[in-house]
């Protein structure tokens, strides 16, 4: 059974592109359209890594990371922020919230997969 990655982005195209890259590498992918939707997907199932956008409706990515870290089952799940945001201030917010990496779009699949491979839970 492959490892599961939760991809959170309000852009369907980004979810599809990321999903294709991850599935092509053998990962199982579940999707969330924003922070609220993504939290509903953290229902106890095993999630080995989360990739989240920052700017999303209803609940932004930074808040989503903070909420995820409050969940005992997902406290140590590594989170990669995948965003168009490149401002240092935003990166610092992501780091403070508990994110493990910050990837500025557009991403290259090889680099993204290398980051995933480096951070994903065993």
């Amino acid at each position: 059974m492959g490892k599961t990655i939760l991809v959170v982005d309000d852009s369907a195209s980004v979810r599809q592109v990321v999903g294709l890259a991850l599935r092509g590498a053998g990962y199982d992918v579940i999707e969330g359209v924003d922070g609220v939707d993504a939290l509903s997907k953290l229902d106890g199932r095993k999630v080995h890594l989360i990739i989240s956008d920052v700017n999303m409706p209803r609940m932004d990515g930074i808040t989503f990371v903070k909420e995820t870290k409050k969940l005992a089952a997902y406290k140590f799940t590594p989170i990669i922020m995948l965003t168009t945001e490149s401002a240092d201030g935003k990166k610092a917010e992501g780091q403070a919230a508990g994110a493990k990496a910050w990837v500025v779009k557009p991403f290259q699949p090889a680099q993204m997969l290398a980051a995933v491979s480096k951070l994903i839970l065993p």
């Binding site: 852009s11 195209s13 980004v14 592109v17 700017n55 168009t84 779009k105 557009p106 991403f107 290259q108």
Partner: peptide, 16 residues
Amino acid sequence: LESSIVLFQFQDRVSQ
């Protein structure tokens, strides 16, 4: 095709 799909990320940036 996979390379082409990656290029479609422009849509997210242009949309924003």
